[in-house]
Protein backbone atom coordinates (compact mmCIF):
# COMPACT_ATOMS: atom_id res chain seq x y z
CA UNK A 1 0.00 0.00 0.00
CA UNK A 2 2.71 2.44 1.08
CA UNK A 3 4.79 1.41 -1.93
CA UNK A 4 1.80 2.02 -4.24
CA UNK A 5 1.23 5.44 -2.72
CA UNK A 6 4.89 6.31 -3.09
CA UNK A 7 4.91 5.22 -6.75
CA UNK A 8 1.78 7.27 -7.50
CA UNK A 9 2.49 10.18 -5.20
CA UNK A 10 2.42 12.77 -7.99
CA UNK A 11 -1.06 11.64 -9.09
CA UNK A 12 -2.08 11.65 -5.45
CA UNK A 13 -0.94 15.26 -5.20
CA UNK A 14 -3.29 16.17 -8.03
CA UNK A 15 -6.19 14.06 -6.71
CA UNK A 16 -5.95 15.14 -3.05
CA UNK A 17 -7.80 18.49 -3.37
CA UNK A 18 -10.60 16.79 -5.31
CA UNK A 19 -10.90 14.06 -2.68
CA UNK A 20 -10.89 16.70 0.09
CA UNK A 21 -13.61 18.66 -1.69
CA UNK A 22 -15.67 15.50 -2.19
CA UNK A 23 -15.36 14.52 1.47
CA UNK A 24 -16.36 18.07 2.48
CA UNK A 25 -19.53 17.94 0.38
CA UNK A 26 -20.35 14.45 1.68
CA UNK A 27 -19.93 15.53 5.31
CA UNK A 28 -22.20 18.56 4.73
CA UNK A 29 -24.81 16.37 3.05
CA UNK A 30 -24.84 13.85 5.91
CA UNK A 31 -24.64 16.50 8.63
CA UNK A 32 -27.73 18.32 7.30
CA UNK A 33 -29.90 15.73 9.02
CA UNK A 34 -27.88 15.32 12.18
CA UNK A 35 -28.70 18.46 14.13
CA UNK A 36 -28.47 17.96 17.90
CA UNK A 37 -31.71 16.66 19.39
CA UNK A 38 -33.09 17.81 22.74
CA UNK A 39 -32.83 14.61 24.75
CA UNK A 40 -36.17 12.89 25.31
CA UNK A 41 -37.93 14.82 22.54
CA UNK A 42 -38.14 14.75 18.73
CA UNK A 43 -37.04 18.40 18.51
CA UNK A 44 -33.68 19.31 16.98
CA UNK A 45 -32.00 22.67 17.45
CA UNK A 46 -28.88 24.77 17.01
CA UNK A 47 -28.49 26.71 20.24
CA UNK A 48 -25.21 28.45 19.47
CA UNK A 49 -26.29 30.36 16.36
CA UNK A 50 -24.12 33.43 15.95
CA UNK A 51 -22.07 32.67 19.07
CA UNK A 52 -18.28 32.50 19.19
CA UNK A 53 -18.53 28.80 19.93
CA UNK A 54 -20.01 27.98 16.54
CA UNK A 55 -17.53 25.96 14.45
CA UNK A 56 -16.87 26.39 10.72
CA UNK A 57 -18.71 23.12 10.06
CA UNK A 58 -21.73 24.20 12.17
CA UNK A 59 -21.88 27.51 10.31
CA UNK A 60 -21.74 25.71 6.97
CA UNK A 61 -24.52 23.32 7.99
CA UNK A 62 -26.64 26.23 9.21
CA UNK A 63 -26.17 28.06 5.92
CA UNK A 64 -27.72 25.00 4.27
CA UNK A 65 -30.60 24.32 6.64
CA UNK A 66 -31.35 27.66 8.30
CA UNK A 67 -29.78 30.56 6.47
CA UNK A 68 -30.38 34.06 7.86
CA UNK A 69 -31.30 32.68 11.29
CA UNK A 70 -31.37 35.10 14.21
CA UNK A 71 -29.21 34.59 17.32
CA UNK A 72 -30.73 32.71 20.25
CA UNK A 73 -31.29 35.92 22.24
CA UNK A 74 -33.92 36.79 19.63
CA UNK A 75 -35.36 33.43 18.61
CA UNK A 76 -34.79 29.81 19.52
CA UNK A 77 -35.64 27.43 16.68
CA UNK A 78 -36.61 23.79 17.02
CA UNK A 79 -37.31 21.46 14.10
CA UNK A 80 -39.07 18.08 14.23
CA UNK A 81 -39.59 15.61 11.43
CA UNK A 82 -40.65 12.69 13.65
CA UNK A 83 -43.31 12.15 16.30
CA UNK A 84 -42.40 11.29 19.88
CA UNK A 85 -42.25 7.59 18.95
CA UNK A 86 -39.54 8.37 16.42
CA UNK A 87 -41.73 7.77 13.35
CA UNK A 88 -41.49 10.15 10.39
CA UNK A 89 -44.23 12.82 10.35
CA UNK A 90 -46.48 12.02 7.40
CA UNK A 91 -49.20 14.21 5.92
CA UNK A 92 -51.73 11.38 5.77
CA UNK A 93 -51.84 10.97 9.57
CA UNK A 94 -53.39 13.06 12.34
CA UNK A 95 -51.22 14.40 15.14
CA UNK A 96 -51.96 16.12 18.42
CA UNK A 97 -49.51 18.86 19.38
CA UNK A 98 -49.69 19.81 23.04
CA UNK A 99 -47.65 21.52 25.70
CA UNK A 100 -47.46 24.50 28.01
CA UNK A 101 -47.08 27.95 26.46
CA UNK A 102 -43.52 29.22 26.96
CA UNK A 103 -42.79 32.14 29.27
CA UNK A 104 -42.64 34.66 26.47
CA UNK A 105 -45.34 36.62 24.71
CA UNK A 106 -44.50 35.33 21.26
CA UNK A 107 -44.17 31.76 20.04
CA UNK A 108 -45.38 29.76 17.06
CA UNK A 109 -45.43 26.31 15.49
CA UNK A 110 -45.25 26.26 11.69
CA UNK A 111 -45.87 23.36 9.34
CA UNK A 112 -43.62 22.87 6.30
CA UNK A 113 -43.48 20.22 3.62
CA UNK A 114 -40.41 18.06 3.09
CA UNK A 115 -38.75 20.82 1.03
CA UNK A 116 -39.22 23.26 3.92
CA UNK A 117 -41.92 25.18 2.02
CA UNK A 118 -45.17 26.27 3.61
CA UNK A 119 -48.04 23.99 2.78
CA UNK A 120 -50.57 25.81 0.57
CA UNK A 121 -54.12 25.61 1.95
CA UNK A 122 -57.37 27.53 1.31
CA UNK A 123 -57.59 28.65 4.96
CA UNK A 124 -54.21 30.37 4.55
CA UNK A 125 -53.28 28.96 7.92
CA UNK A 126 -49.61 28.04 8.02
CA UNK A 127 -48.87 28.15 11.72
CA UNK A 128 -50.39 28.23 15.19
CA UNK A 129 -49.14 30.96 17.52
CA UNK A 130 -49.72 32.11 21.06
CA UNK A 131 -52.35 34.71 20.18
CA UNK A 132 -54.32 32.21 18.05
CA UNK A 133 -54.41 29.76 20.96
CA UNK A 134 -55.23 32.59 23.38
CA UNK A 135 -53.19 30.85 26.04
CA UNK A 136 -51.51 32.53 28.99
CA UNK A 137 -47.80 31.96 29.59
CA UNK A 138 -47.21 28.58 31.21
CA UNK A 139 -50.78 27.41 30.52
CA UNK A 140 -51.55 24.26 28.50
CA UNK A 141 -52.53 24.32 24.84
CA UNK A 142 -53.36 21.66 22.28
CA UNK A 143 -54.19 21.47 18.59
CA UNK A 144 -54.50 18.93 15.79
CA UNK A 145 -52.53 18.58 12.57
CA UNK A 146 -54.64 17.00 9.86
CA UNK A 147 -55.24 17.15 6.13
CA UNK A 148 -59.02 17.11 6.80
CA UNK A 149 -61.06 19.72 8.64
CA UNK A 150 -61.25 19.24 12.42
CA UNK A 151 -63.63 20.61 15.05
CA UNK A 152 -60.79 21.40 17.44
CA UNK A 153 -58.04 24.00 16.81
CA UNK A 154 -56.24 22.58 13.82
CA UNK A 155 -53.40 23.20 11.41
CA UNK A 156 -53.95 22.03 7.81
CA UNK A 157 -51.43 19.53 6.42
CA UNK A 158 -50.99 18.60 2.76
CA UNK A 159 -52.69 15.44 1.43
CA UNK A 160 -49.47 13.47 1.07
CA UNK A 161 -45.73 13.57 1.66
CA UNK A 162 -43.67 14.12 4.76
CA UNK A 163 -44.04 17.16 6.97
CA UNK A 164 -41.68 19.12 9.19
CA UNK A 165 -42.61 21.28 12.19
CA UNK A 166 -40.74 24.36 13.35
CA UNK A 167 -41.30 25.63 16.89
CA UNK A 168 -40.06 29.19 17.49
CA UNK A 169 -39.75 30.94 20.84
CA UNK A 170 -39.18 34.68 20.37
CA UNK A 171 -37.26 36.80 22.88
CA UNK A 172 -36.78 33.81 25.18
CA UNK A 173 -36.21 34.74 28.84
CA UNK A 174 -33.01 33.49 30.49
CA UNK A 175 -35.08 30.87 32.32
CA UNK A 176 -35.65 29.14 28.96
CA UNK A 177 -32.09 27.79 29.09
CA UNK A 178 -30.93 25.08 29.36
CA UNK A 179 -33.66 23.68 27.14
CA UNK A 180 -35.32 20.54 28.47
CA UNK A 181 -37.72 18.17 26.75
CA UNK A 182 -40.52 19.09 29.18
CA UNK A 183 -40.53 22.66 27.78
CA UNK A 184 -41.16 21.45 24.23
CA UNK A 185 -44.48 20.46 22.64
CA UNK A 186 -45.43 16.80 22.50
CA UNK A 187 -46.12 15.33 19.06
CA UNK A 188 -48.52 12.40 19.38
CA UNK A 189 -49.83 10.40 16.46
CA UNK A 190 -53.59 9.87 16.80
Amino acid sequence: MIAFLKQNSFRLLIAAPCVGFGIGILVLFIARNTQPTVQGSPWKTFLNIGSDGESVLQKAIRAGVGIYALPKEEVVYFMANTDEEGNRLEAGHRYRISGNAPFTRIWSITLYDDDHRLSANPLERYHINGSMMNTEQGQPYSFIISSKEENDYWLPAPEKGNIVLCYRIYLPPASTFPIQASQLPRIQKL
Binding site: V19, I23, V27, L57
Partner: peptide
Amino acid sequence: LGVTSCWATF
Protein backbone atom coordinates in the same frame (compact mmCIF):
# COMPACT_ATOMS: atom_id res chain seq x y z
CA LEU B 1 -3.99 19.49 0.41
CA GLY B 2 -6.82 17.03 1.05
CA VAL B 3 -7.49 18.29 4.57
CA THR B 4 -7.21 21.93 3.47
CA SER B 5 -9.62 21.37 0.58
CA CYS B 6 -12.14 19.73 2.91
CA TRP B 7 -11.87 22.68 5.30
CA ALA B 8 -12.11 25.16 2.41
CA THR B 9 -15.32 23.44 1.28
CA PHE B 10 -16.89 24.07 4.70
